[in-house]
């Protein structure tokens, strides 16, 4: 499920990968033929109408109020609390994912046990599940009358829970393939040179995993700060307590206050853009290292 969702950025610049030890010539770059030109034109018109123009509209709307509007919007205590809650919870969840996601990836690749394949499939469930359903599902176990007595719904913990649910696959699915490709000869060589298991993990394995963990973490953070659907039913959207930025934007929209919505949304867009740039840099560095 994951390649499309967890891969960092699309790499079209690189040469075709060598196959079976032989190197293939890189794809020659054709200048546009008339047919391809028409295709590009139509695709760009649709892309502009669907993505570029609407996103520009947000920026334009936000900018029309000047800096003072940003100031007013962010100054509002309820908004500021929402921003703080979102950022803190996203960081917490990303940290959890860094640790647990790496552990899960490790267990999936290096361990063999009954039910492992099932575990592997379940990891993808949060990607496939509609977000509102995710919230409903979590309400069952962590809502009122919780069968295990953990009634986290409508508390800040609900936000952690929902974000952890929807971001579960990111780090697992970025780390897993790297771990699979890892050359175990190197580990054996290190062991033969007298390195202990923790040393091997820290000095040999972890460094190769860092880029994957980093890009998984960035994706998981980006997803967390923009999450909406899974929180709707679970967090109760209580102002100053469980209200996240997306919910805040939505309530601006519902009140017809598009300018404030756009101001807050443009801040989120900026963060999203930042994440993409960071990912691109990470990927480029990894590609260069080979």
């Amino acid at each position: 499920m994951s390649a499309a969702l967890t891969g960092a950025t699309i790499d079209t610049a690189g040469p075709a990968s060598p196959q079976g030890g032989r190197t293939r010539r890189t794809t020659p770059r054709n200048t546009l033929t008339p047919g391809a030109g028409v295709g590009l034109g139509l695709a760009m018109i649709w892309f502009s109408l669907l993505v570029l123009l609407p996103l520009s509209a947000i920026v334009a709307r936000a900018a029309s109020g000047g800096w003072s509007q940003y100031y007013t919007v962010l100054q509002n205590p309820q908004t500021w609390n929402a921003v703080q809650l979102t950022v803190t919870q996203s960081l917490v969840v990303t940290l959890i994912n860094v640790v647990v996601g790496t552990v899960i990836a490790w267990v999936l690749v290096r361990d063999r046990f009954w039910g492992q394949r099932l575990l592997n499939v379940i990891i993808d469930v949060p990607f496939a599940l509609p977000t509102v359903v995710a919230g409903l599902v979590l309400l069952g176990l962590y809502g009122p009358n919780s069968p295990i007595g953990v009634e986290w719904a409508f508390t800040p913990n609900a936000v952690t829970l929902a974000l952890a649910f929807v971001t579960l696959p990111f780090i697992v699915r970025t780390v897993q393939p790297v771990l699979e490709e890892l050359d175990t000869d190197v580990e054996q060589a290190a062991a033969s040179l007298g390195a202990s298991r923790p040393t091997i993990f820290r000095r040999i394995i972890l460094p190769s995993l860092v880029p994957a963990i980093a890009s998984g973490a960035a994706l998981s953070f980006a997803r967390a700060i923009s999450e909406y659907g899974s929180l709707v039913l679970l967090s109760g959207n209580r102002p100053n307590q469980t209200e996240v930025v997306s919910v805040r934007v939505l309530s601006f929209i519902e009140n017809g206050n598009y300018s404030s919505a756009a101001a807050l949304a443009s801040v989120m867009l900026f963060i999203a853009l930042l994440v993409i740039v960071v990912l691109d840099i990470v990927q480029r560095r990894v590609a260069r290292r080979g």
Binding site: T9, L55, S226, A262
Partner: peptide, 29 residues
């Protein structure tokens, strides 16, 4: 993948944008 045209790198980065934009922001846009 098959053609060369100005702005290609930017386009290939832009088509990724929808993945990291909040759905609410998409709706607002």
């Amino acid at each position: 993948v098959r053609y060369d045209f100005p702005g290609k790198r930017v386009l290939s980065a832009l088509v990724d944008v929808p993945l990291s934009v909040s759905p609410v922001v998409v709706g607002l846009a």
